[in-house]
Write a protein that binds this DNA or RNA. Structure first.
Lengths: 189, 189
DNA sequence: ATATATATTCTAGCATTGCTATATTTTCAA
DNA sequence: TTGAAAATATAGCAATGCTAGAATATATAT
């Protein structure tokens, strides 16, 4: 009997609707507008139902953050493959990273400032997180010996640029110049 | 009659007590523990008094963030003067930046993630913000032609490193290596 | 010195939030 | 069809940011 399967499917669907609604609201009105009541209304169930899917509000944000890391990884890989040459790929990846952050500000916020509980270097690290790091390492790797240090530094530079751009603390216009500086640093030995 | 002066002094003192209490609580228990009720209790006044000093809770965080930028500026300058040579100064400044973020995590959080409303490149930008940027530029400046781009990129790299370290997403051990990489990039033409 | 006006502070409460205990309904198997 | 179990809803708690209005203290003018 496929009853259990159907129920499982329906639950997964509803869970998806929850995160989708949360993402939509967060992107259009900010994370403060993402309340349990609002989400319950959106999916047309009562509030306690949400707690049968997620332990608490933060867990919803964390789930979305993990989605985001998966999407970021594919976006970076797509950029890497679209461009030939080491330096060209690095620059493409860097620009893709910043574009991603700019296109989904609430998602990026979930990934890097809301869901701080998601560690990287631990045993329970979700594959999506490792994969995003790996996508960056692939772009950095071929050109350098100290891959890990270089990748961490590359990531930090990109994240810093994304964050300071978002908060309007560095000029929006000089993005390309800053990326060129970062990339030129990492491309050479 | 110095009555108005006395009142002004008392008000300023009370305001200082509010931000001091908020900072203390934030550093020891996190920003969630910084509630208006808690602060009111701490300064031994009723809650509405706080609203005669600050428009709302966020304004308290913003005031603390500005304090933080001032302190960061002096810390960076101290590091720059303590070390001779261009490259040496750059590295000292970088390490001082990361140490500052590590020593006052709640303060740093206030500066860069809580008080997002504080813009840099606008007319109403507080001098403390400009000064912190200037302190970085002083360290970057002598070695480069494109000072502004280089300073923005330097800042972004440092902020990214601080943020990813704080959230445990890059290894705590390799800090020096990453800083060396960043500095070597900016020191050379 | 006293009364009045002004400034200051407090009490009490509203609306919203995350979350949960409990009641109710629906679903499935015997 | 009926009874157990799973799923869902109602109602409410405690905490939060914030504010209206009452009450108190303070300074000035007579």
């Amino acid at each position: 009997m496929g009853i259990a399967e159907r129920k499982g499917r329906e639950r997964a669907e509803r869970e998806q609707r929850i995160t989708a609604a949360a993402r939509l609201i967060a992107e259009s009105e900010g994370w403060n507008a993402v309340t349990i009541r609002r989400l319950a209304e959106e999916i047309e169930y009562s509030q306690p139902v949400l707690y049968s899917h997620f332990e608490n509000r933060d867990a919803i944000v964390a789930a979305i953050a993990i989605e985001g890391f998966g999407e970021l990884a594919t976006a970076l890989r797509q950029a890497a493959h679209g461009s030939a040459g080491c330096q060209g790929a690095l620059e493409s990846v860097a620009m893709a990273y910043l574009a991603f952050a700019r296109a989904h500000p609430a998602l990026y916020e979930a990934m890097f400032t809301k869901a701080t509980g998601l560690r990287f270097a631990e045993t329970d690290t979700r594959p999506e997180l490792k994969d995003a790091f790996a996508a960056l390492a692939e772009a950095v790797g071929p050109a350098r010996a100290d891959v890990e240090v270089a990748t961490e530094t590359f990531w930090a530079a990109l994240h810093g640029l994304a964050d300071l751009e978002r908060s309007g603390r560095i000029r929006q216009g000089a993005r390309a110049a800053r990326v060129r500086l970062v990339v030129s640093c990492l491309a050479e030995p």
